[in-house]
Amino acid sequence: MRAVVIRENGGPETLKVSETPMPEPGEGQVRIKVAYCALNPLDTHSRAGRIKWGVPPMPFTSGYEYSGRIEKLGPGVDAGLMGKRVASAGTWGGTGEYSVAPAKSLVQIPDGINWQLGTVYYTSTLTAWHMLHTMARMNKGDVILIHSAAGAVGVMTAQIAKVAGGTVIGLVGSESKAAYAKGYGCDHVINEKDDAEWPKKVKDLTNGRGADIIIDGNAGPAAPKNFACLAPLGQIIYIGAMAGPAPDVNISMLIGGSQGVRGFVMYHAMAKTKGAEFKEIHDKLISGQWRFPLNPARPLSDIAQAHDDFENRRTMGRTIFTIGGEV
């Protein structure tokens, strides 16, 4: 079968579609005929070697966020799962025509959610929902500042925060992204490319208080700028490090301003709520109250270009690749 296999860390140009053996499901596993695979930030991090944890040993098949139909069951798997439409949740392998995953790790795509939305809504929407509700315990009236507000997590965070009574400020890197983020409900958008003093702008927009919750998937050496616009009792939630690791944090420096720094990976939150959030998420996506920022599907042969676009911050919303399509 065809797949994009990561054999060594490198740039986007190292991504190639090649022939690999068909995987067989082991104990507790199923084989999935893949429909669509999204470009998740973890795909770029694992290719480039930016993350060390949670990545399978090489060689492994790229594709952290994908959908498909269960077409073969390993020993010990409930026979009722055969033929079900599922999305991955924390397993890799979505750029192959077939993938294998533990049956228990998969999420069934509800009726009313099509294949393409079913591929992507899950990770970004749950990440956004859990950051705001399970982790930050946001209250009505909180001010939420979102880095990369035109990305999939950013767009979903804005919509979920608005429904929960928050005020949302989006940070973006271009004018077209500013318009995009505003279209998804950000109350204010700041183009940080134009304005290195963006923390001051956040303070101005909040009567000098700053944001209660800052969500940052970029981090990097400039991450401490977040502190300059974090309100007392506020928290910075790091969900990634696209711009490299953030500098270490001195705890004593947090005390005087009642500030906080937290990290977040979604699967920890899911273990906590055991799915209580799904009803709201499904209802609001199916009714259209929340709109998922999904781009037209691209062929898998575009993968190197898509990684390059993403890493150079030319992407808005979620990119997906057609693997088997409407399986």
Binding site: L254, S258, R262, A269
Partner: peptide, 9 residues
């Protein structure tokens, strides 16, 4: 980030 942990003052 890896442990979804935090520290606040």
């Amino acid at each position: 980030i890896a442990g979804s942990q935090g520290v606040r003052g």
